[in-house]
Design a protein around this nucleic acid. Structure first.
Length: 489
RNA sequence: GCGCCUCUAGCUCAACGGCAGAGCAACGGACUCUUAAUCCGCAGGUUCAGGGUUCGAAUCCCUGGGGGCGCACCA
């Protein structure tokens, strides 16, 4: 290999190593025979000091190095784990070069699998080649990187240095894969609906707006997939789902990122009770597969996700936690008084339903460790949900609350086109009065409903929040590989 | 948007009104079974920026910037 002649450049103020006078030549490919996990699995029984007689080629990053005269050890990490490289001046080609490797350099190495006298499974390297040099150093070798800004901006470093971070994102990948398979096994069909929408509907949120040049058209990035998925139910997809990126032009917080991933699933002939059963079964399945149990813990506190989860109405829960009775049947002046007592921020034009919801969110939601299905929301705040079959003013809607935060939202879907038009018009009115999150009338969606939407249960699940829950991380940025950040200064 | 906290070597941190330091990384050397190897040596700084107080400021104050946390906002 090329000697690392470059020295630390003084005054650059960065960790970049000097540019070598001659760049090392690195190969276009490397023939790896095993990953490090396979080597561990195959040679579990090797005794200390024993040689296997098996030659392998491994590849990865050198993350630790211990040179001891005519002997050198290095830890080679790959995506499956790590194994020690064992080099002898007498055996290893370009032994000197190996000793000059930097932490973080990528290498491919070939040699026999052995266990050292001290019991460490190793590849006794005969030949090796540099696959990529780490011109920037990886920093402290055991404290890792604690500067959160660096962790999020340079995830490629974080992933190498912090094992917890790797674990979280491996879990995320498996979670989405398991979720997809579980739904497919139950007859759900996965689809992709537009990200660009003329009317950003399906949720109450401000959209991002962009522009299509050829059509000279402003388009919204979707805030939900709901309305398109229900169009597909009209079209005969009786069980349909999408796991998709969704965009909302809102603030950032430990639980909010402007782009996030949502699962939405719709099932014909089903109601919100069916969606509760679906939700708890799905989450229990994921917990079992990913955590080995439904009795998990979050932030050190026990959390039992075993079905069935508690079902309680929103009114009952507010009564439990705030000791007051609220509901859409309570006179509005009384609701205003209760809201005032609990320091709920009030706005002109809020009806009883909005007040009830605000009181619930202020006094109760964060207290619910759960899991609990909070049922039967005011119709006023649920413009896409079907009226409750027996409770006037309410709709058949639930939110699943786990660890004090919303994990899922679901309804018996509103199927009546006339009612839906009335709800849209109510929203449009609120919008005209300055509510930027209110919906606008989606004529094509109404037309679809006029062709007939069967009774349908719909469910939305915040995938990032589910990852947070099962990976036991407490900021959405820890569940997103590349979270939205302010530009670097 | 508001409040509180924070910013020191490449990384992790100390010094908290009196000479800016340690460990790791880097660099040079010793070492044939190491495990965060060890040992010897060397180097590394506009203490986020600017202003002020002071005999003296990394330290106290002000302004600005970055970051964090909380609140507000947020299906």
């Amino acid at each position: 290999m090329t000697s690392r002649t470059g020295t630390s450049k003084a005054g650059t103020g960065s960790s970049v190593r000097g540019v070598p006078e001659r760049r090392p030549e690195v190969p276009y490919r490397f023939e790896r025979t095993h990953d490090t996990a396979a080597i561990r699995a195959n040679h579990e029984d090797l005794e200390p000091g024993e040689e296997s007689g098996v030659t392998v080629s491994v590849a990865g990053r050198v993350m630790l190095r211990r040179v001891q005269g005519k002997l050198a050890f290095a830890e080679l990490h790959d995506s499956s784990g790590a194994v020690q490289l064992f080099c002898l001046a007498a055996v290893t080609a370009d032994y000197e070069g190996f000793c000059r490797l930097s932490l973080g350099d990528w290498v491919g190495a070939t040699g026999e699998v052995v266990r050292t006298k001290r019991g460490e499974l190793s590849v006794k390297v005969t030949g090796w080649e540099l696959l990529a040099e780490a011109r920037r150093g990886f920093g402290d070798k055991w404290h890792g990187i604690s500067d959160v800004d660096t962790r999020y901006r340079q995830r490629y470093v974080d992933l190498w240095v912090n094992e917890g971070s790797r674990r979280t994102f491996q879990l995320r990948s498996r979670l989405i894969s398991l979720m997809r398979r579980w739904l497919e096994d139950r007859g759900f069909v996965e689809v992709e609906t537009p990200v660009f929408q003329l009317v950003a509907g399906g949720a109450l949120a401000r959209p991002f707006v962009t522009h299509h040049n050829a059509l000279d058209l402003d388009l919204n990035l979707r805030i939900a997939t709901e309305l398109h998925l229900k169009r597909l139910v009209v079209g005969g997809f009786e069980k349909v789902f999408e796991i998709g990126r969704t965009f909302r032009n809102e603030g950032l917080s430990p639980r909010h990122n402007p782009e996030f991933t949502m699962l939405e699933a719709y099932q014909a002939y089903a109601d919100y009770g069916d969606m509760m059963a679906l939700t708890e079964a799905l989450v229990a399945h994921l917990a079992t597969e990913l955590c080995g149990t439904t009795q998990v813990s979050y932030g050190g506190r026990a959390l039992d996700l075993t079905p069935p989860w508690r079902r309680a109405t929103l009114s009952e829960l507010v009564e439990e936690h705030a000791g007051v009775h609220v509901g859409v049947d309570v006179p509005i002046d009384e609701l205003r008084r209760v809201a005032g007592e609990h320091e709920v921020h009030l706005e002109e034009g809020w009806g009883p339903g909005k007040l009830v919801l605000e009181i619930y969110e202020k006094t109760t939601e964060a207290q619910l460790w759960g899991p609990v299905f909070v049922c039967d929301y005011p119709q006023e705040v649920s413009p896409l949900a079907r009226p409750h079959r027996s409770k006037p003013g309410l709709v058949e809607r639930f939110e699943a609350i786990v660890a004090g935060r919303e994990l899922a939202n679901a309804f018996s879907e509103l199927v009546d086109p006339d009612d839906q038009r009335a709800r849209f018009e109510e929203q449009a009115l609120a919008r005209a009065h300055g509510d930027e999150e209110a919906m606008t009338v989606d004529e094509d969606y109404l037309r679809a409903l006029e062709y007939g939407l069967p009774p349908t249960g719909g469910l939305g699940v915040g995938v990032d929040r589910l990852v947070m829950l099962l990976a036991d991380v407490h900021h959405i940025r820890d569940a997103l590989l590349f979270p939205t950040l302010r530009p670097e200064a």
